[in-house]
């Protein structure tokens, strides 16, 4: 074990994959200079450029700002023997390549009757909660959940970031990974040796018996904090499930937990309409309506653009306080004064 940051874990996974398989290449904007800290071998930004020195320009390639052709090139390369990792930096840049994602990356294997395999990973970071304004704060993973043929991961811890990325790179299907910048600095002990976390397996971030909180991306640590606070103040036992993979979704793990607790809160930073929380809620209602003791409560971003000012933006995403308020609601507990004020503010 060694202490790794979220970003360091991603860099470690990429380095291991580059060492393990020469078909793995990395390209994207600013990868040669290791601007984002995931294409360097060292633990600090000062080691920038390491991947370029280690693997050479054939396998580490800067690109122009041309998302559509980058994504298409990755698809074509994946169909002909390479296993590219494309660093698209900001998640909102994915829209520039929407045709390639939807019409080529996702469809080619299917519409060519299985002739193509598409072993490619598209990494992008969600810069929400950091005063980047409406163009850089997107959390667009639910849009891509609506595209059959893509696999989608959203790790919330350094260990998951490393293990899931290795599985994504080894997958013969296209995987999009959405990394929350709010989690970049998170540190924990991570195995130094190679390990793989299977796609499609949820993680129980905290065990509990009274209520299930399914939380996604940066909402996971917030949900765990809410659970700890409620355990201390009310003696409530909250189970926190992190799906980690959104496609394929570990529906069984969610249903098992709901069968145990009978109550469900779903928390995610994406917009409310047709979000992952909406899909998870609908599935639980269809499959486990009979065990629910209370209506499901979603804690999401509102269907609103993201404003720049801290004073405006901080209310937009689930926090430990809004998640705590939701848990209190499904347990029919009195709203705590702090949680209820914030929840009221967020609802306005």
């Amino acid at each position: 074990m060694t202490v790794m940051s979220f970003l360091g874990a991603i860099g470690a996974a990429q380095r291991e994959a580059m060492d393990a398989d020469e078909r793995v290449i990395i390209f994207g904007e600013d990868v040669e200079a290791n601007v984002y800290g995931t294409t360097g071998a060292g633990k600090t930004r000062s080691d920038k450029g390491d991947f370029l020195q280690m693997y050479g320009r054939n396998r580490i390639r800067n690109t122009p700002i041309s998302e559509e052709s980058m994504v298409g090139a990755a698809a074509g390369a994946a169909m002909t023997g390479l296993r590219p990792i494309v660093d698209l930096s900001y998640s909102s840049f994915l829209y520039m390549a929407m045709d390639q994602f939807v019409n080529q990356v996702a469809k080619n294997r299917y519409m060519f009757g299985g002739q193509a395999s598409m072993p490619v990973v598209f990494r992008s970071a969600m810069f929400y909660g950091l005063n980047t304004g409406a163009h850089h704060s997107d959390r667009p993973y639910p849009m891509f959940m609506n595209v059959p043929g893509l696999k989608i991961i959203a790790p919330s811890s350094p260990t998951d970031a490393k293990g899931l990325l290795r599985s994504a790179i080894d997958s013969d299907d296209p995987v999009l990974t959405f990394e929350a910048c709010l989690l970049w600095g998170t540190k924990e002990d991570v195995p130094e040796e190679e390990f793989w976390i299977p796609l499609g397996e949820a993680r129980t971030a905290r065990e509990g018996t009274d209520v299930t909180v399914v939380a996604i991306s940066s909402s996971v640590p917030e949900a765990v904090a809410a659970a700890e606070a409620l355990a201390a103040s009310e003696g409530v036992s909250v189970e926190v499930i992190d799906p980690r993979t959104l496609v394929p979704l570990d529906r069984d793990a969610i249903l098992r937990s709901v069968h145990k607790t009978g109550r469900l809160v779903v928390a995610e930073p994406a917009h409310r309409t047709c979000g992952a929380a909406a899909e998870i809620s609908a599935h639980v209602v269809e499959e486990a309506f009979g065990v629910l003791k209370a209506p499901i409560v979603r804690v999401t971003a509102p269907d609103m653009q993201i404003p720049f000012s801290t004073a405006l933006e901080k209310q937009m995403y689930p926090t430990r306080h809004t998640i705590e308020a939701a848990i209190r609601r499904v347990l029919d507990l009195p709203a705590s004064s702090e949680a209820s004020e914030l929840a009221a503010a967020s609802a306005q």
Partner: peptide, 28 residues
């Protein structure tokens, strides 16, 4: 694929970068 035909496309222009990607693969 047996004859190198990597696919026709109903979206005008959409398959152009796919060919470029195949060329990238050959180059790497």
């Amino acid at each position: 694929f047996a004859v190198g035909s990597l696919g026709e496309s109903g979206i005008v222009g959409s398959s152009i970068p796919i060919a470029m990607g195949a060329a990238l693969s050959a180059s790497v």
